[in-house]
Design a binder for these strands. Structure first.
Length: 877
RNA sequence: GCGAGAGUGGCGGAACGGUAGACGCAGUCGACUCAAAAUCGACCGCCUUCGGGCAUGGGGGUUCGAAUCCCCCCUCUCGCACCA
C-alpha cells in the first residue's frame, strides 16, 4: 500500500432531526447507572436463591484498544440471552474479562516504546468504557485480565498439577518456526504453510518444547462430540476431522543388508502385495543416517526442509524423492526386496513418518511411482472387472473389490483382507492392528515476553524442577527491553538466574512463556470464583459450570474450543472441576460486513467519505468525484470499510446499534451493516417512544371487564406477540422477534386511529408496556424509559421484572380465514368460527361464487378439510 | 479432491407439509409544510385480453396439497486438504 493521500476529515453527517423525541444520550447513562446501583446483574459465587442457574458467556476480547462491530454483534447476542434468561427466572452469570497476553502488545513496545503492560491496561480501560456504553448486562465485579499475576499464578499452578499428573511432556521436536514473529507455532496456527498471525512462510526447526498431552484424551474428545447436542453440527465435524481417528496397522520392515528396521503405519494392509517401494519423511532418523554419509541425500533433505511447506510445493503437489539405495524385505514374500526412498510427501508428524508405497491403490503413491519409474501391481480388482485384462494407468483404484496377486489373501474382499493381513502380521510378530490419530500433542512454549511464564527451573544437577507452590507466581519482570530480536526474558540480565529449589545451586529459569491459547482454555471456569486464592473453588465451579450458552466466532471452531475441552478434562483429572465439557451450548455468529468504496484511481474510502445520490450513484462527499461501490465484504482497516461502533452509539445510541444488528438477518449468518438500516432502527426507537408518549394525556383506567372491537383486536395482537417473541428468543431467531415487535407497533398505531371506545386506552397501555418489556432484551434502555413513563412510581426496573406471559384465551382468534383450494389451487377464502365443523366450512366454501364456478359441472372425488387452515376439493378427470 | 451448508421480490429475510413473500430496507404516489426534514396514509414478485396465468436455482418423484419430504443436476459459500 502506498496510499499517500490523506483521508478526508471524518465528517459526521448531521444527527437525525429534531422535534420532541427520545433523548437517548441522557437516558442511556441514566439507566446504566440505575442497573448498577441496584446490582441487577450480580450473582453470588454459590447462590442460595434456589433459582436454576444459567451461565451465558461470549468469547472474551483481545484488548486491541477499540471495539469493532464484530464485538457489538457478539456481545449483543449474549446480552439478549442473558436478559431474557434472567427474566425467565434463571440466576444468570454473565461475566466479562480480557484475553490480555499476546504479540500486539510486544509489537507496540517495539514500534512505539510503550511498555506492553501499560499499552494493554490502557486499551482495556478504553474498551471497558466502550462496552459499558452498550448497556450490556454484565457483572463487572468478575472482570479480570489474563495478564494479571492474580490470574496467571493460578494458571501456573494448574500447569504444575498437570505436570504431576503426567499430562505435560518436554520433547525435542520438529516445530513450526515463524521467522517473522521469531517463535514456534502450533500446527493449528499454521494455515496454508504460513503463520496464522504474521503470514510468514513457516520453517521446520528442531527445539526442546513443553507439550500438553492432549492426545491422551483423543478418544474421549472425539466420542464426547456426540453428546454436544447444542453445538453446531459443522463445528463438531471440524473437530472430529481434526482429531482424525483412523484404523490400520503398524508393521516393521527389515532392511535387506542390515539389522535395522523401519516401522510403517498403513490403513491398507490388504494391499501389501502391491508394494513397490518404501518411503520415509525427510525428517526421519533413517533419512538423517543416510544423509550423514551421502552428500546428495543430505542436500535433498536440506532442500525439503527449506521448502518444506512452501507454496510452490503445496500448490503443485509436486512429489520429490531420493533413492537411498537401501532395500527392505517384504513381510510376506520370501526373498522380495524394495527400494527405500526419502520423499517430501511423507509427513514425519503423522503415523511413523514412513509408508509403504502401493501405487495401484493410492493416488500419491501412483504419482510418485510414475514419476520415478517404479513398478505398479494391481491387487484389488474392481467389481465386474476382468482379472486378466485389468490394468492401471495414472489413476490409482481406491474403491472396493476382490483381492488378486496377493498370495493367501486372493479372493477376499478389501475388509476381509485387511483382517487377514493384520492376523498374519501378528502371527509373524512384526505388526499389529492399531488406531491412529491425527491430533498431536499441544506445544505450548513460546519465545516471548508478554505471556504467562512457564513455572519451571532448569538445574544442571536436578534437571527440570517445578517452581514450588509457595514461590508462585513466577512474575514477569517489568524492566525489559525490546531492542533486539528474540525473547526479552532471555536477554534480561538477572531474571532467569535463580537458585535451584531442590539443591540450591545456581540454575536457570525457563524463559519461554505459554501460548496464549492456554490463558483462554480455563478463563470461563475462573469467572466462577474470580478472586479466590486457589485456581478454582469447587462449590462455585460445580454450581456454574458448564457454560450454558457460549457465543463467539466460527474462527475458533477448532483451536480454542478443542483446547478448552481438553483443559477442562485435565482440570477434572487433577481435581479442580467436576465437569468434562466446558460448553453445553455453543452458538457461532456470522461476521459483520460492509460495502467497500474506492475512488476511480483506486484509493479506498471510508463510508463517511461517500455520499449516495438519489440516482443510485455514489460520489465523494462534498464533491462530484465518482466513487466505485465495491463488494460487501468483511470489515477491514486496509479496505477502510469499517464502521466505528463508538461513532454509531454517539450518533444513534446503543439501543439502535443493538436493534439493527439483531434485526438484519439470522445471527449465524454474515450480516451487512448498512447506513439506511441503522437509520431505520433509530426511527423505530423514536417511534416506540412516541407510542408511549401518546398515552401521556390519556386518563389512566382500571382494567375494564369488557373491550370493544378495536380493544379486542389490539389485545389479541399483544398476546400473540408475547407468545411469538418468546418462541423466537427461545430459538435464537432474534430477527423474527424483532419483526414481531414491529407488528405489535403497527397494531398499536392502528388502535390509535380507531374511534374511542371503553377500555381501548387500557388496551393501548398494555400493548405499549409489552412492546417495551418484550423488546427489553434487545433495547434495554428504551424499555426502561417507556416503562418508567407508564409507571412513574414503579419500584422495579424492567431488568428486574419477570417475562410476560400470554393469556391463552387471547391467542384464539374470534374467527379464522380458511383457504379454499380446488385441485390444490387457491380459489378463495372464507371466514368461519374457530374450530368450525367440516360441513360448516364446506358449505361456506361452496357458497363462494368463485369456488362454485370452479366446481361447476365437475364431480367431486374427495374433500379435504384441515381445521382452521384449508379445504381442498379433488375433482374427477 | 473430500466434507458441510445454502439457493425465495430490487435487497435482508418470513413461512408446524396447508392462502409463498410476514417484518424491515430501498422505491412510487399522496397528506401535512412557503419549502424541506420528521411524521402519517396508500401502493410495491412477473405477465394479463382483468377471467386468470406464472412464480421459492433446474429437472423428476411422493402427496388432495411441496419453498418445506425423496432422487438427479447446476451454482455459490465455508471448512479440510499429500494424514498413508
Amino acid at each position: 500500500m502506498n496510499d499517500t493521500s490523506t483521508a478526508a476529515p471524518r465528517q459526521e453527517p448531521a444527527a437525525p432531526d429534531s422535534g420532541p423525541r427520545y433523548d437517548f444520550a441522557a437516558a442511556e447513562p441514566r439507566w446504566q447507572a440505575a442497573w448498577d446501583e441496584r446490582g441487577c446483574f450480580r450473582v453470588a459465587d454459590v447462590p442460595a436463591d434456589g433459582k436454576p442457574k444459567y451461565y451465558v458467556l461470549e468469547m472474551f476480547p483481545y484488548p486491541s484498544g477499540k471495539i469493532h462491530m464484530g464485538h457489538v454483534r457478539n456481545y449483543t447476542l449474549g446480552d439478549v440471552v442473558a436478559r431474557y434468561k434472567r427474566a425467565r427466572g434463571f440466576s444468570v452469570m454473565h461475566p466479562m474479562g480480557w484475553d490480555a497476553f499476546g504479540l500486539p502488545a510486544e509489537n507496540a513496545a517495539r514500534e512505539r516504546g510503550v511498555h506492553p503492560a501499560k499499552w494493554t491496561y490502557e486499551n482495556i480501560a478504553n474498551m471497558r468504557a466502550e462496552l459499558k456504553r452498550m448497556g450490556l448486562s454484565l457483572e463487572w465485579e468478575r472482570e479480570f485480565a489474563t495478564c494479571q499475576p492474580e490470574y496467571y499464578r493460578h494458571q501456573q499452578k494448574l500447569f504444575l498439577d498437570f505436570l504431576k499428573a503426567g499430562l505435560v511432556e518436554r520433547k525435542e521436536s520438529w516445530v513450526n518456526w515463524d521467522p517473522i514473529d521469531g517463535t514456534v507455532l502450533a500446527n493449528e496456527q499454521v494455515i496454508d504453510g504460513r503463520g496464522w498471525r504474521s503470514g510468514a512462510l513457516v520453517e521446520k526447526k528442531l527445539l526442546s518444547q513443553w507439550f500438553l498431552s492432549i492426545t491422551k484424551y483423543a478418544p474421549d474428545l472425539l466420542e464426547a462430540l456426540d453428546s454436544l447436542d447444542r453445538w453446531p453440527e459443522r463445528v463438531r465435524l471440524m473437530q472430529a476431522n481434526w482429531i482424525g481417528r483412523s484404523e490400520g496397522a503398524r508393521l516393521t520392515f527389515s532392511l535387506a543388508d542390515s539389522q535395522e528396521t523401519v516401522e510403517v503405519y498403513t490403513t491398507r494392509p490388504d494391499t501389501l502385495y502391491g508394494m513397490s517401494f518404501l518411503a520415509i519423511a525427510p525428517e526421519h532418523p533413517l533419512a538423517a543416517a543416510v544423509a550423514s554419509r551421502n552428500p546428495d541425500a543430505e542436500a535433498f533433505v536440506a532442500d525439503c526442509r527449506r521448502r518444506g511447506t512452501s507454496e510452490a510445493v503445496i500448490e503443485t503437489g509436486e512429489k520429490l524423492g531420493f533413492d537411498t539405495g537401501l532395500r527392505v524385505k517384504h513381510p510376506f514374500i520370501e526373498g522380495a526386496t524394495y527400494p527405500v526412498w526419502i520423499a517430501n510427501f511423507v509427513l514425519m508428524e503423522y503415523g511413523t513418518g514412513a509408508i509403504f508405497g502401493c501405487p495401484g491403490h493410492d493416488q500419491r503413491d501412483m504419482d510418485f511411482a510414475r514419476k520415478y519409474g517404479l513398478s505398479v501391481t494391481p491387487v484389488v480388482l474392481p467389481p465386474g472387472a476382468d482379472a486378466a485384462s485389468f490394468t492401471l494407468g495414472k489413476e490409482a483404484y481406491v474403491g472396493p473389490g476382490t483381492i488378486i496377486n496377493s498370495g493367501f489373501m486372493n479372493g477376499l474382499d478389501v475388509d476381509a483382507a485387511k483382517r487377514a493381513a493384520i492376523g498374519k502380521l501378528e502371527q509373524l510378530g512384526i505388526g499389529q492392528g492399531v488406531t491412529n490419530w491425527r491430533l498431536r500433542d499441544w506445544g505450548v512454549s513460546r519465545q516471548r515476553y508478554w505471556g504467562c511464564p512457564i513455572p519451571v527451573i532448569h538445574c544442571k544437577s536436578c534437571g527440570v524442577v517445578p517452581v514450588p507452590d509457595d514461590q508462585l507466581p513466577v512474575r514477569l519482570p517489568d524492566d525489559v527491553t525490546f531492542d533486539k530480536p528474540g525473547n526479552p526474558l532471555d536477554h534480561h540480565p538477572t531474571w532467569k538466574h535463580v537458585d535451584c529449589p531442590t539443591c540450591g545451586k545456581p540454575a536457570r529459569r525457563e524463559t519461554d512463556t505459554f501460548d496464549t491459547f492456554v490463558d483462554s482454555s480455563w478463563y470461563f471456569a475462573r469467572y466462577c470464583s474470580p478472586h479466590a486464592g486457589v485456581p478454582l473453588v469447587r462449590d462455585a465451579v460445580d454450581h456454574w459450570m458448564p457454560v450454558d450458552q457460549y457465543i463467539g466466532g466460527i474462527e475458533h471452531a477448532i483451536l480454542h474450543l478443542l483446547y478448552s475441552r481438553f483443559f477442562t478434562r485435565a482440570m477434572k483429572d487433577t481435581g479442580h472441576v467436576s465437569v468434562e465439557e466446558p460448553f453445553a451450548g455453543l452458538f457461532t455468529q456470522g461476521m459483520v460486513n460492509h460495502e467497500s468504496y474506492r475512488t476511480e484511481d483506486g484509493h479506498w474510502l471510508y463510508p463517511d467519505e461517500v455520499e449516495k445520490r438519489p440516482d443510485g450513484t455514489a460520489v465523494r462527499r462534498g464533491t462530484d468525484q465518482p466513487v466505485v461501490v465495491g463488494r460487501v465484504e468483511a470489515m477491514s482497516k486496509s479496505k477502510r470499510n469499517t464502521i466505528d461502533p463508538g461513532a454509531i452509539i454517539a450518533r444513534y445510541g446503543a439501543d439502535t446499534a443493538r436493534w439493527f444488528i439483531l434485526s438484519d438477518n439470522p445471527p449465524e449468518r454474515d450480516m451487512e451493516w448498512t447506513e439506511s438500516g441503522a437509520a431505520g432502527a433509530f426511527r423505530f426507537t423514536q417511534r416506540v417512544f412516541r407510542l408511549a408518549e401518546a398515552l401521556d394525556g390519556l386518563p389512566a383506567e382500571t382494567r375494564p371487564d369488557s373491550f370493544g372491537a378495536a380493544g379486542r383486536t389490539l389485545r389479541r395482537a399483544t398476546h400473540r406477540c408475547i407468545a411469538a417473541v418468546t418462541e423466537a428468543l427461545d430459538s435464537f431467531a432474534f430477527n423474527v422477534a424483532v419483526a414481531r415487535l414491529y407488528e405489535l407497533a403497527n397494531a398499536i398505531t392502528e388502535a390509535e386511529r380507531a374511534a374511542a371506545e371503553p377500555g381501548l386506552n387500557w388496551a393501548r397501555r398494555e400493548a405499549v408496556e409489552m412492546l417495551a418489556r418484550l423488546g427489553s432484551p434487545m433495547m434495554p434502555h428504551l424499555a426502561e424509559d417507556v416503562y418508567a413513563r407508564l409507571y412513574p412510581v414503579a419500584d422495579k426496573l424492567v431488568a428486574q421484572l419477570p417475562w410476560p406471559e400470554a393469556d391463552p384465551a387471547l391467542l384464539v382468534a374470534e374467527s379464522v380465514t380458511i383457504a379454499v383450494q380446488v385441485m390444490g389451487k387457491l380459489r378463495g377464502t372464507v371466514e368461519v368460527a374457530p374450530n368450525a365443523a367440516a360441513e360448516v366450512v364446506f358449505a361456506a366454501a361452496e357458497a363462494d361464487a368463485n369456488v362454485a364456478k370452479a366446481l361447476e359441472g365437475k364431480r367431486i372425488v374427495k374433500r379435504v378439510h384441515v381445521p382452521n387452515r384449508i379445504v381442498n376439493y379433488v375433482l374427477a378427470g
